[in-house]
């Protein structure tokens, strides 16, 4: 495991003061590769906070060019780059914040063709995709490869976050057995709501990697910013889950 440099100690000093995190936690972040699916309203702030916190390497995957309707929430982007690839803007912004970061930019979304390889390169996965097809692909690959996945999602004023550890917790398809009918690619979104879900997700990842605090393993944090309520919902695995039930036969809960 690579040790911290003096420069890194200077940058991360204030967060290393956090109880139960310290230099060991910082070193764990430095030596981790995180895969983030998409760099939009949710994945953008996930990447930004992971970069700020000192993650060692980010693999970011997002296809397409920046559109005007992205700019209310995609905070890695800038107005002057409308019409140009999102992924290049994301990479440049992240490296401007943290030049020690290694960024592997994939100019396409998570797909059947790339999911196994990209998950294989990562120590932890942040699922921030707006489509269930993409979320399910990541979930399946994480379960198969036994990689932890932080699942972050939002809609309108609501957000949801859970930490999935294959073999220990229910997987995404235990929670959502099928693609919810009527889910559309375009949905109401405030940037501050997706950013809140992102920040909860990042802290779940940092806690998982450093062993600090109590995580959302097996629980879903749900919040509604319309009336500022939140609660934790216990999640149950489905014994007949087509994705993860095999794991439970090997290692029962």
């Amino acid at each position: 495991m690579q040790a911290l440099t003096d420069e890194e100690r200077a940058v991360y000093e204030w967060q290393m003061w956090t109880r139960d995190f310290g230099e060991a936690g910082q070193q764990a972040l430095k030596n981790t590769t995180a895969l983030v699916s998409r760099v939009g309203g949710l994945g953008g702030p996930v990447c930004l906070e992971l970069a700020a916190a000192g993650i060692g390497r980010l693999i970011i995957a997002h296809g397409g060019n920046l559109k005007p309707s992205d700019l209310n929430r995609q905070i890695l982007m800038s107005h002057e780059h409308l019409g140009t690839p999102r992924i290049e803007q994301a990479k440049a912004r992240l490296l401007a914040l943290n030049p020690r970061l290694e960024v592997s930019a994939v100019a396409s979304n998570i797909s059947k063709e790339n999911v196994d390889r990209l998950v294989g390169e990562a120590g932890i996965v942040f699922d921030c995709a707006p489509l269930f097809e993409e979320r399910f692909l990541l979930n399946r690959a994480c379960v198969t490869q036994r990689k932890p996945m932080i699942d972050c999602a939002m809609f309108s004023m609501e957000g949801q976050v859970t930490t999935i550890v294959p073999g220990e917790t229910p997987c995404l398809q235990c929670i959502y057995p099928e693609i919810p009918p009527g889910w559309k690619r375009e949905f109401p979104v405030f940037g501050a709501v997706s950013c809140a879900a992102a920040c909860y997700g990042v802290m779940e990842g940092i806690k998982h990697l450093s062993g600090m605090g109590a995580s959302l393993k097996g629980q879903m944090l749900y919040f509604d910013m319309r009336n500022m309520t939140s609660y934790r919902l216990p999640l149950q695995r489905r014994p007949d889950c087509p994705i993860c039930s095999q794991l439970w036969k090997v290692s029962p809960p």
Partner: peptide, 30 residues
């Protein structure tokens, strides 16, 4: 009342006075 209701049992799960239901919608926005 803090227990998840199986989807298959929604129709056969009868409520009683004072029950507390939490409904969480599936969302997938990113």
């Amino acid at each position: 009342n803090e227990d998840i209701v199986d989807r298959e049992s929604f129709g056969s799960t009868l409520l009683i006075d004072g029950d507390a239901l939490e409904l969480v919608r599936f969302v997938g926005g990113g």
